[in-house]
Design a binder for these strands. Structure first.
Lengths: 159, 159
DNA sequence: TGATAAATGTTACCTTATAACATATCAACC
DNA sequence: GGTTGATATGTTATAAGGTAACATTTATCA
């Protein structure tokens, strides 16, 4: 489990290694990791929370990198489609992936107070779900779990 | 697993028993199952697919039951908050619950071609996710899984 | 039956997302 | 090294999804 979102840590290093991992993967796969896309990922990495596309756009604008919604959505689509970021449907928001470039089945723990999001990994073929799909002849291509609840910090504050 | 969404069946009975189960539950819990809310549920039950709030609103309008978005959203909120319907975040859409009134942890099998949705049940405390949450001190209040893929009908057509 | 709460009606608006087309940049091959 | 086809970015306009705020009506129950 990746609990980094809920714990303090060396955040600068965290951004740096995230970017480097993706840069390396893109080089290997001949994907264009353009300044715009790189910056979008940096923006997401800078927070350990999900950010709305328009929030990302605001940051991009300040940096003089695109100012209209499609610019942000396209950069985010690139990141999501290659697994460098995830979309948290529940929040209509995006978050940098904790395991970029590695094939995985993510689950998200979303704090309903502060919106912090932690990414956990599930086994690709989850028991009951896989069985249920098999029984009906449904072919699962991708599965995402979103859990809502309280992060340790907010749980502490709430009592 | 509830595979009814992918198989032919007596649909009229299906709507009737769905409404009756909810009506009974509401009576027992002293919830107001008003004509508007009942109609909204009927609309959802009529399809075994997720419907957008504005689609539901269109139907309500035709029936002379409210014509503005908040009317539909409030009826849907009522249904969702009491577990009579679910929101499919991935589709920004709503679907009648297959197990109304019963406490459950749903998973959805969403066909990416025809948008049909089947509801499966998972054990509330899923192995890896529960463990991951425990490790970080995250308290899960609710978890939803959405699986994207191909329903048997569309899988057949696609080759 | 009157007081209170719950539900519905209505206006106005905000947020999220995309279609469509123009322009610029890249990749790679001759 | 210039041409060409593909990929990426810029820009306008608008579609789709969702809610705040307040007025009015309907239910609940003392």
């Amino acid at each position: 489990m990746d609990n980094i979102a809920f714990a303090s840590h060396d955040h600068r290093a965290c951004i740096k290694t995230g970017i480097e991992a993706v840069a390396k993967y893109c080089a290997a796969q001949k994907l264009q990791f353009t300044p715009l896309r790189r910056r979008a990922l940096e923006i997401l990495l800078h927070e350990h929370r999900a950010m709305g596309a328009y929030d990302v756009l605001d940051h991009l604008r300040r940096d003089g990198l695109g100012s209209q919604p499609p610019v942000a959505y396209r950069a985010l689509d690139f990141l999501v489609s290659h697994g460098f970021a995830h979309k948290i449907e529940r929040l209509n928001a995006f978050i940098a992936c904790a395991r970029p470039g590695q094939d995985h089945t993510p689950a998200f723990l979303i704090c309903r107070i502060c919106d912090a999001v932690a990414e956990a990994q599930l086994e690709p073929s989850r028991g009951m779900l896989g069985r249920a799909a098999e029984e009906t002849g449904f072919t699962i291509e991708q599965a995402v779990t979103e859990a809502i609840g309280l992060c340790p910090n907010c749980a502490k504050d709430i009592q």
